[in-house]
């Protein structure tokens, strides 16, 4: 790709997009698994509320979320000023902020996929493992987690593909800084705003479509393989 199809700035946007998406997905995973476990197996009062909050990002306008993050994590905002004072860490104007916004927005994708694969597991298997001497925690790692693996992988890939398309929350929360927060969608937007940037915009758009498609096809193949292996 180097020196050929993509300009250095475009390549930078691609690598940044990948980094943001990977970090968002990986950080989300353990939380998503716990949330899915809670929703699939737990029965408690107010479950509908937890369910609603987890799925909120699906219906929330991304720009509104970006604004919300800004009020919470801005350098003079409650959480943001605390992080800056104690850890010298800030989300705003940084790629980590982009990852945080992406993580929140794609969280429901992961929870949903994992939850479905947990709910599809037969209760009988867990009972059998119990009579064989496996404690609930033991069963989580020896039974539920491995059996949920197809769902975990499918959820991660779907979330990854969705991360690559994130725009509104990122530009609102962490702005559009080349090399720091300018991911592919933001680069496309910038290219369109720039006179003579139509070619660059087209190339980047084609690139993001290719990435998204690859992700979806991959998710499909992986889950089908795994499901077949577990039958």
């Amino acid at each position: 790709m180097e020196g050929g199809i993509l300009s250095p700035a475009e390549l930078q946007a691609l690598l940044l997009s990948l980094r943001v998406a990977i970090v968002a997905v990986v950080v989300d995973l353990p939380f998503a698994f716990c949330a899915a476990l809670l929703l699939a197996r737990g029965s408690f009062r107010g479950k509908w509320l937890v369910d609603g909050i987890i799925h909120l990002p699906l219906v929330l306008p991304p720009v509104a979320l970006g604004y919300l993050l800004l009020i919470l994590f801005g350098t003079r905002a409650p959480i943001g000023s605390f992080l800056l004072a104690w850890f010298g860490f800030r989300f705003v104007f940084s790629w980590t902020g982009a990852a945080l916004a992406s993580a929140i927005l794609t969280f429901p994708f992961q929870v949903r996929a994992i939850r479905l694969s947990l709910e599809a597991q037969e209760v009988g298997l867990s009972e059998a493992a119990g009579t064989l001497g496996a404690t609930p925690l033991d069963r989580l790692f020896s039974l539920h987690l491995p059996l949920a693996l197809p769902g975990v992988v499918a959820g991660a890939i779907t979330a990854f593909a969705a991360c690559l398309g994130e725009f509104g929350a990122i530009i609102t929360f962490v702005s559009n800084i080349p090399g720091e927060t300018r991911t592919i969608p933001l680069a496309i937007y910038t290219a369109i705003q720039t006179p003579g940037g139509e070619n660059a915009a087209a190339r980047l758009a084609a690139l993001s479509i290719a990435l998204a498609l690859t992700g979806l096809v991959l998710a499909d193949i992986v889950t089908r393989r795994m499901r077949a292996a577990f039958r």
């Binding site: 491995p146 059996l147 577990f230 039958r231």
Partner: peptide
């Protein structure tokens, strides 16, 4: 068990 309940993985 009647339905055996072997661990598929």
């Amino acid at each position: 068990f009647q339905d055996l309940r072997l661990f598929p993985h």
